[in-house]
Every structure is written in C-alpha cells, then in structure tokens.
Computed example of a mutant assay.
Amino acid sequence: MEFKATDIASFLGGEIVGDSDVKVNNVSKIEEGKEGTLAFLANPKYEHYIYETKASIVLVNRTFVPNKEISATLIKVDDAYKAFASLLDLYVQATTKVKKGIEQPSFVSEGVPLGEDVYVGAFAYIGQGAVIGNKVQIHPQVHIGENVTIGDNSIIYAGAKIYPGTVIGNRCIVHSGAVIGSDGFGFAPQEDGSYKKIPQIGIAILEDDVEIGANTTVDCGTMGHTIIRKGTKIDNLVQIAHNCDIGEHNVFAGQVGIAGSTKVGNYNKFAGQVGLGGHITVGDHVTLGAQSGVGQSVKSNQVLFGSPAIEIKQAMKAYVALRYLPEMRTDVARLKKDLEALKDK
C-alpha cells in the first residue's frame, strides 16, 4: 500500500517542503531510513540524521529550520511525534485483519453472553457468569474467570489471566502474560514465626482506555477493590498491589512497583523501576525519575528523583557532590593528618 506526500500532508494538515509526488510504502527510524519509507524527527538530539537519512519523507515540527541541504521531502506539522503516531494508527487499521468468531478447541461456559463480532481464540477459557461486550478480542490461551466483565472493543492478548470478578472497561488492552485480579500479598504473622494467609476477597477494576503491559500484575483488593482509572497506560513488568487507587491518564514505565493501599492521582509519569511504599498518596502531575524510591506522600506538580526521592534540583546537586566524595575523603584524611601534626608541636 503506497501513500503520496500530498495524501499524508492532507491527512495531517501538514505543509510539504520538497517533492509532493514522492511515495512511501513503509515507515522507518530516521537513522535507519530507506528509500520508500517515512520517518519523523521530534527530538533535536537526532537532527544530524535528517541530513543523511535515505527516508523519502520525514515528518518535522513546523518550527524546524534546517542548517544544510536535505534530500528527503519534509512534511511540517504541529507535533511530529503525535503526527507519526496518528499515521501508525491509520496504518494498523488499514493492514490489520480483525478476527471474529470462536475458534476450537476453546471453552465458553454455558449462558455467557457474547457481544457482536467477538473473537475467542483457540484454547481460551471463559468462566461462568462472565459478560463479554461487542468486538472484544480474546486471543488464544487466555483465561477469563467467573463473573468477569469485559467492555466493548477491548483486547486480551494471548496467555493473559483474568481472575474471577474482575471488571475491564471499554477499549482496554491487556497484553500477553499479564495477570489481573490475583491475590494481594497479605499474610498475618503468627506467634511461632510462621505466616497465615489473609483471604483476598476484593476485585480489580480497569476503567475505560486502560492499557496493561506484558507480564504486569494488578492484584485484587483484600476487601473492596484495586482500581486503575481511565486512560492510564502501564508498561511491562509492573506490580500494582492490593487496594491501590491509580488515577486517570498516568503513565508507568517498566518495573514500577506500587505497594498496597497507595493512592496515585492523575497525569503522573513514573520512569522505570520507580518504587512506592504502601499507604501513601501521590498528587497530580508528578514526575518520578528512574529508580526513585518514594516512602512518603508527594504533593502535586513536583519532579522528584533519587532514593529516597527528593526534588530534582536537590537530587542533581547531591549527585554531583557524591561524585567528589573520594576526593573529599582524601582531603579530610590529609587535613586530619595536618591537624594531628599541629597538635604535636
């Protein structure tokens, strides 16, 4: 499938600089661009690639001004990254064949209502009392437990496990290996030093437009529920513990871990390996840098880094000081020696 520069510019509302008749049939990274592909430039650190890329078309921001000749045709848009994402979405819609029907062998419990145009892949299991909405995609080897509800247009990829009682909203995506609604980590210490399991009788809830990455776990509530609110996107290998309340439109990168009963607000960004202690509250519009450790509540509109996490400017100053610790240790030892010498006089 080929697209002309004029078609792409028209779809994106962009401005063409160069050959308006050039065609592309695939996409590429700007540093790996080949003839017949479309790339994008959003990060200034990659600007040097635009002068040597073989990509036929490159999306750039309207503010971009080249400092030397470029062989590729440019399409200037308001936001090159968002424009590229829109094109990828269009490409996927045009090239992906949506499956329908129930493959065999699979098991759908008697009386389970399936919506229109549902796909159930081979070896999938759907338990009693489940409710499956319209155009839901349940891929092979998925386990859907009893009394699970899945909203319209949601996708559950191969091998995901959805525990009983879980509620999944509309347009959600649960990637392979994810487990939603598993037991929270609750054990009562006994007098003899052993631990007695505390039954976990709550559920997990994913609101609309939530995405859960591969091998991520969202535990059910001990009582009540664990909830991921609408629009939140969670990467691979993330742990959300029991009774957490995760707000709207957050993004969590890989290996984030959030301990039980923690409440996270809206529009937050947690980088990789961020860890949050239990029973704390994080406000809105908070950014936590990679490997930050948070053990107490955080107010809104902050950027924190480090373990324990502190304000980013302080963290950078502390990091700079840390680099000089070996020299400072040597200086202190020398000063101590000099002081001892003075005392002996």
Rank of each mutant, 00 (worst) to 15 (best):
E103H: 08
Q104H: 06
Q104F: 01
Q104P: 02
P105W: 02
S106E: 06
S106I: 05
F107D: 05
F107K: 13
V108N: 09
V108E: 02
V108S: 07
S109Q: 09
S109A: 15
V112S: 08
V112H: 13
P113N: 01
L114S: 10
L114T: 08
L114I: 04
L114W: 01
G115F: 03
E116Q: 07
E116P: 07
D117V: 00
D117T: 00
D117S: 06
D117Y: 03
D117H: 06
D117N: 13
V118A: 06
V120F: 07
V120Y: 10
G121R: 05
G121L: 01
G121S: 04
G121Y: 01
A122T: 10
A124G: 12
A124I: 06
A124T: 12
Y125L: 11
Y125T: 14
I126K: 14
I126P: 11
G127D: 07
G127N: 12
Q128Y: 04
G129Y: 07
A130V: 04
A130L: 07
A130H: 09
A130C: 07
V131L: 00
V131Y: 03
V131N: 12
I132Y: 03
I132V: 09
G133E: 06
G133F: 02
G133T: 01
N134W: 06
N134C: 03
V136D: 13
V136T: 08
V136N: 15
I138A: 09
I138F: 05
H139D: 08
H139R: 13
P140V: 00
Q141I: 00
V142L: 05
V142A: 04
I144T: 11
E146Y: 11
E146V: 08
E146M: 10
N147K: 08
N147E: 09
N147M: 01
V148D: 09
V148Q: 12
V148E: 07
V148L: 08
T149C: 03
T149E: 11
T149Y: 08
I150F: 12
I150R: 15
G151V: 03
D152G: 03
D152F: 03
D152M: 02
N153P: 12
N153I: 00
S154T: 12
I155C: 14
I155K: 15
I155G: 11
I156M: 13
Y157R: 15
Y157M: 10
Y157Q: 14
A158Q: 02
A160M: 04
K161E: 01
K161C: 04
I162W: 07
Y163I: 04
Y163P: 14
P164I: 01
T166S: 15
T166N: 08
T166M: 04
V167K: 15
I168Q: 13
G169V: 09
N170F: 02
N170E: 12
R171D: 11
C172W: 12
I173G: 04
I173Y: 06
V174I: 15
V174R: 13
H175E: 03
H175L: 05
H175P: 14
H175N: 09
S176H: 04
S176L: 01
G177L: 00
G177Q: 00
I180K: 12
I180L: 14
G181R: 15
G181Q: 14
S182R: 11
S182P: 10
D183A: 10
D183Y: 04
G184A: 03
G184I: 05
F185A: 07
G186Q: 11
G186F: 02
F187M: 04
A188Q: 07
P189F: 00
E191W: 00
E191Q: 08
E191I: 05
